[in-house]
Design a binder for these strands. Structure first.
Length: 549
RNA sequence: GCGGAUAUGAUCUAGUGGUUAUGAUAGUGGCUUCCCAAGCCACUUACCCGGGUUCAAAUCCCGGUAUCCGCACCA
């Protein structure tokens, strides 16, 4: 089989300590990968830049919530329902199927099984028992009568369940954004595509809360003329943010702004602009919670266009769901320019009369009366528990009060940029990978941006002469004290050591040679051009930091 | 999950029932004192797992696992 970029890259990644298949000594498990020493640093650098974008360029705040998530949270959010498939298992041949796949379109899966209409396509045995299978990892908190829980399929719910606290933290002003960087878990039926579909994966999400009547963004004017790379499933187009919003291609400023932030981020960490686009979701592929969604897609030589970031308008879906389920006040307040005074008529129940008259039903009647928004007619007939009850007028009185309203309550809308970090890491590697022929040999270079490169500077003595070694080690120490991640290497020929650094994407190499002993200068070699500068040691740190950006 | 293919050191690979399991690359130590994977010497590392057939299995058969290619799934 000819080796494609994916194969070559994954071999390099394993050999050089970026990515390893997990549990390999026990045969490995699909959908799990370890990050080695260099992969961990690369991931760390990418996440650090991501935080700079969301905490500094934008003004989000960061939180951390548990990966183990209570059943009730995901029940309320719709994940328990939407994530479940009814499945059957054949007792005879042990094959498992989704019932949906075995019945005709439009037929209820549950009914079909109950009626004995579903049989095994492999051996013909009729299925009598179906059980729901959820694509989330489930567990219990505590033992015995522990509370059911799942490993979270997204970090977002941890933000939604804290909304009321965060709203207060942000001084009860919209919009505000909250980020979380962490792990998510999905028990994929059959993960393929290597590291692109993992069962445990790193994600970085932002939930930005807006007043639904104003989805403008404060930074929008600064970037309105920047160009977005868009694809509407038919043609690719380049539009400025302003034009995209004005023409209705993108629904609102907030979506457009976070799309630009995403584009800027991806290009900063080293994604090839020619292998990047935004694609709008069609109505049939929208998630259960989403209203409009744009994916940032990256082009892989093997896998084609792959979704790496989703930017969704989740509207009020999640907060509404949690308000309904938990009854916690997660409303925001839209203040009026000046408070309004409204005369309202209220029905005040007279419990002294109601109690003796209706006994047990008095409580329900009290609630019904208090909930009334119009002045009751005589005689007042209420329907309590399906029973019509006539309430005499002495049981309540109608009072007129003046209520002061400072604003109106509403459920905020949320714009969610959600990043698959592992996918981005893969693409940063694939897009920076280059293989060239050098003297009949394949020579591999990772053109990583200096900001994401796990190692910044290689430090070598030209030869293993004691005096050169000593000076090289001193320089290595000097650079580390200046917070530069270095790699000291004195093994093998100088060419081999340069090659090793090129293969892991180290942007610069410092070499100590005989001249260095005389005039305290070193050579600095550039990864991409292989050109060398001779630099005095006393200005080396400033020189390197400038070159590294 | 279905169908097909594949599985030998870190990587690529030879090996068609009996080998001390082939070679190369990489790695490590040394020599060389050298600016782009040079050379020389030495060394480390492998038959995916479990059953079966056979006097004898890396090799044949069955099952599992993983990977790859289609299909399905991918909130």
């Amino acid at each position: 089989m000819p080796q494609d970029v994916y194969n070559k890259l994954m071999m390099l990644a394993k050999r050089r300590g970026f990515i390893y298949p997990s549990f390999e000594i026990y045969g490995g498990v699909a959908g799990f990968y370890d990050y080695g020493p260099l992969g961990s640093q690369l991931k760390h650098n990418i996440e650090t830049i991501w935080r700079q974008f969301y905490l500094l360029k934008d003004s989000c705040v960061e939180i951390h919530t548990p990966t183990i998530t209570l059943y009730e949270v995901l029940k309320a959010s719709g994940h328990v329902e939407e994530f479940t498939d009814l499945t059957v298992e054949c007792n005879k041949c042990k094959h498992a199927f989704k019932v949906e796949d075995l019945v005709k379109a439009g037929v209820s899966a549950e009914e079909a099984v109950q009626n004995g209409d579903v049989s095994c396509p492999d051996c013909g045995t009729t299925f009598t028992e179906a059980h729901p299978v959820n694509l989330m990892f489930s567990t219990y908190i505590g033992i015995g009568t522990g509370r059911p829980a799942f490993l979270r399929p997204e970090t977002a719910q941890g933000i939604f369940t804290n909304f009321h606290l965060l709203y207060r933290y942000c001084r009860e002003k919209l919009p505000f954004g909250v980020i979380q960087v962490g792990k998510g878990f999905r028990n994929e039926i059959s993960p393929r595509q290597g590291t692109l579909r993992q069962r445990e994966f790193a994600m970085a999400e932002a939930e930005v809360f807006f007043d639904p009547e104003n989805k403008n963004h404060r930074n929008f004017p600064d970037v309105k003329d920047k160009i977005l790379y868009l694809f509407d499933n038919e043609k690719e187009m380049k539009l400025s943010l302003k034009d995209a919003v004005d023409q209705g291609v993108i629904n609102n400023q907030a979506l457009a702004y976070y799309m630009y932030l995403t584009q800027d981020f991806l290009l900063t960490v080293g994604i090839n602009p020619k292998k990047f686009r935004f694609r709008k979701h069609g109505g049939d592929e929208l998630a259960h919670y989403a209203r409009e969604c744009w994916d940032a897609e990256l082009l892989s030589e093997r896998f084609g266009w792959v979704e790496c970031v989703g930017i969704a308008d989740r509207s009020a879906y999640d907060l509404t769901a949690h308000i309904d389920a938990s009854h916690v006040d997660m409303y925001a307040l839209r203040k009026f320019p000046t408070p309004k005074e409204i005369t309202v008529k209220k029905v005040l129940p007279n419990m002294g009369k109601l109690g003796p008259l209706f006994k047990r039903k008095a409580g329900a009647i009290q609630k019904a009366l208090e909930a009334m928004t119009t002045v009751p007619k005589h005689p007042l007939i209420l329907t309590i528990d399906g029973q019509k009850i006539s309430v005499p007028s002495e049981c309540y009185e109608v009072v007129e009060t003046i209520e002061k309203q400072v604003g109106e309550r509403f459920v905020p809308h949320v714009i969610e940029p959600s990043y698959g970090i592992d996918r981005i890491i893969y693409f940063v590697l694939e897009h920076s990978f280059e293989e060239i022929q050098k003297k009949d040999e394949e020579y591999r270079v990772l053109h990583l941006d200096p900001r994401v490169a796990p190692l910044k500077v290689g430090v070598f003595p030209l030869i293993s002469d004691e005096r050169l070694v000593e000076q090289a080690m001193d320089i290595d120490r000097l650079l580390r004290d200046a917070l530069l991640t270095t790699f000291y290497d004195e093994g093998g020929t100088i060419g081999r050591r340069y090659a090793r650094m090129d293969e892991v994407g180290t942007p610069l190499c410092v070499t100590v040679d005989h001249q260095s002993l005389e005039d305290l200068t070193v050579t600095v070699r550039d990864r991409d051009s292989t050109e060398q500068d001779r630099v005095p040691v006393d200005t080396l740190i400033a020189y390197l930091k400038k070159r590294l950006g």
